[in-house]
Every structure is written in structure tokens, then in C-alpha cells.
């Protein structure tokens, strides 16, 4: 029984380790300026205030960066689901020559740091006229999210019995109708999780976003490039704001987290 208690203590300690830093940055984000610079600091906020956070939103370019981030993440979401789900479906439902080669291509993307590829792409994007555009960033982010989307949706479709689709065919559906009426409703929650995952990948990505933009900065890119010449309150509020949506998203897809990664690591 003592062992059980030890486990519990360790588990709680890990919770503290995960949550404390988030709590601290939240504290800073909701303090006034003097408390941000106060020394020594207490664990609890001295004074709740919106000064820091409103200062952050008041900085020129922040709103635009947020808007850009949302737009890029939304585009990434759409692209990766639209490109990934059909491929996932094909992998799940058909045996075809080349399926293994395709799987290999998808797995290969794991052996390379994809964001780094923004460097050659930046050069090419300038020639194509999509440098410093949201579309350009979204395309690179899609390359990051697509392998995931393919693997996850393939396992998702695999978990929907083929007989359901066949039953629909025998009852008068053509392929598309059977997909829309039977497979899609069943796959929807999983597809939503995949989409959210793609969104978070894009929302968090900074290297490619910074390299590929000058004025059309996403929020991480904006924060990163202004780190050196911005005061601490700005950075803390920015860091906190970056975390919030991610927290919400992870909460929403938590049920799928393990199926997502369990299959993605096959």
C-alpha cells in the first residue's frame, strides 16, 4: 500500500512540474508592470491586472499577426485534411501496387527536419511570388502536417468496417454516396481531431514562418523577431497567449491523442 502512495506522490509531483510553469507565466501575464519586474517574486500574483495583457494587444502588429496565424492554421487544416484523408482512405481500403512505396515516402518525411526545408523553399517562393504570403507559409505547414493526416486518417478508416460500406452498396449507394452517408459520419470525430492536430502544428510552427515572411508575420514569427527589442511583459503575455489555444485544442482531442500517436508510430 505504501508503494501505491509513493506512486501517487510521484504522479502529483509530475503534475506540479507540468502545471507550475504555466501557472507562473499566466500569473505574469495577468499582473501589472511593477509586479512583472518585482524582486523577489512570490508564487502568487500580488495584484491581478490586465495591464500587461492589454499592453501586449496594444502593440502595433499583434492583432494582424494573430489574424495571420489563424488564417495560416486554417489553411493548413483544410489542405492537410483534403490531401491527407483521400490518401488515408486509399491506404485503408485498397491493396494496390505502390502502397508500400507510398507508406515509405510518408515515413521518410520523419527522418528529415522538415522546417529546415523552408530555406530552399524561400528562394523558390520569391521566384513564384508567394514569398511573404500566408499561402506560402500554409503550404510549408501542410508539408509538416500532411504525413500525420495520412497515417491518422488511414487508421481511422481502417477502424470503420468495410462491410458497412459494402452494405450501403448493396442497398443502392454508389461509392460516393456510401462514403458520404456511412463512412463520413462515422469518421467525423476522428477527422476533426486530425484537423485540430494540423491546426496546432501550424499555430506553433516558428522557423519556417519566420523565414518565409517579412511583413505577413504569424504570431510566433512576430514574437520571435521582436524578442530582442521588446520588454519582458510583452514577451510573457505573448508566450501565454501562444499557449492558450493549444491547451484548449489538446483538451478537445485528448480522447484521440493515443489512437493518433499509437497508429502514427506503427
Amino acid at each position: 500500500m505504501n508503494l501505491r502512495r509513493l506512486y501517487m506522490v510521484l504522479a502529483v509531483l509530475l503534475v506540479v512540474w507540468v502545471l507550475l510553469p504555466i501557472f507562473l507565466i499566466a500569473t505574469l501575464a495577468f499582473s501589472d508592470r511593477p509586479s512583472v519586474f518585482a524582486w523577489p517574486k512570490g508564487l502568487l500574483p500580488q495584484q491581478f491586472s490586465l495591464e500587461t495583457i492589454s499592453f501586449f494587444f496594444g502593440v502595433e502588429g499583434v492583432w494582424r499577426a494573430i489574424r495571420n496565424s489563424l488564417a495560416v492554421a486554417a489553411m493548413t487544416l483544410v489542405f492537410s485534411v483534403l490531401l491527407g484523408a483521400p490518401a488515408g482512405y486509399a491506404l485503408a481500403r485498397y491493396r494496390f501496387a505502390g502502397a508500400d512505396a507510398y507508406r515509405l515516402l510518408i515515413l521518410m518525411t520523419r527522418a528529415f527536419p522538415l522546417a529546415i526545408l523552408a530555406i530552399p523553399l524561400a528562394v523558390r517562393f520569391i521566384q513564384l511570388g508567394i514569398y511573404d504570403t500566408l499561402l506560402g507559409v500554409a503550404l510549408v505547414h501542410t508539408a509538416l502536417a500532411l504525413p500525420f493526416a495520412v497515417l491518422v486518417t488511414s487508421s481511422l478508416f481502417l477502424s470503420i468496417p468495410k462491410e458497412l460500406e459494402e452494405a450501403a452498396w448493396t442497398l443502392g449507394c454508389n461509392r460516393l454516396q456510401a462514403f458520404l452517408r456511412v463512412v463520413l459520419p462515422l469518421a467525423l470525430p476522428g477527422l476533426a481531431a486530425t484537423a485540430i492536430f494540423a491546426f496546432v502544428i501550424s499555430w506553433n510552427e516558428v522557423f519556417a514562418a519566420t523565414l518565409l515572411t517579412l511583413r505577413e508575420r504569424t504570431l510566433p514569427a512576430f514574437l520571435l523577431t521582436s524578442l530582442n527589442d521588446s520588454p519582458l511583459p510583452f514577451r510573457f503575455a505573448g508566450g501565454f497567449f501562444l499557449i492558450v489555444p493549444a491547451l484548449v485544442f489538446i483538451f478537445v482531442i485528448r480522447r484521440y491523442l493515443f489512437t493518433l500517436w499509437g497508429i502514427a508510430s506503427r
Partner: peptide, 10 residues
């Protein structure tokens, strides 16, 4: 769900 940049700032 936390980005590397955000983690750095934290």
C-alpha cells in the same frame, strides 16, 4: 500543445 517558442518564454 505548447510550441517551442512559448516553452522558451515560459
Amino acid at each position: 500543445g505548447i510550441s517551442d517558442l512559448a516553452a522558451g518564454i515560459v
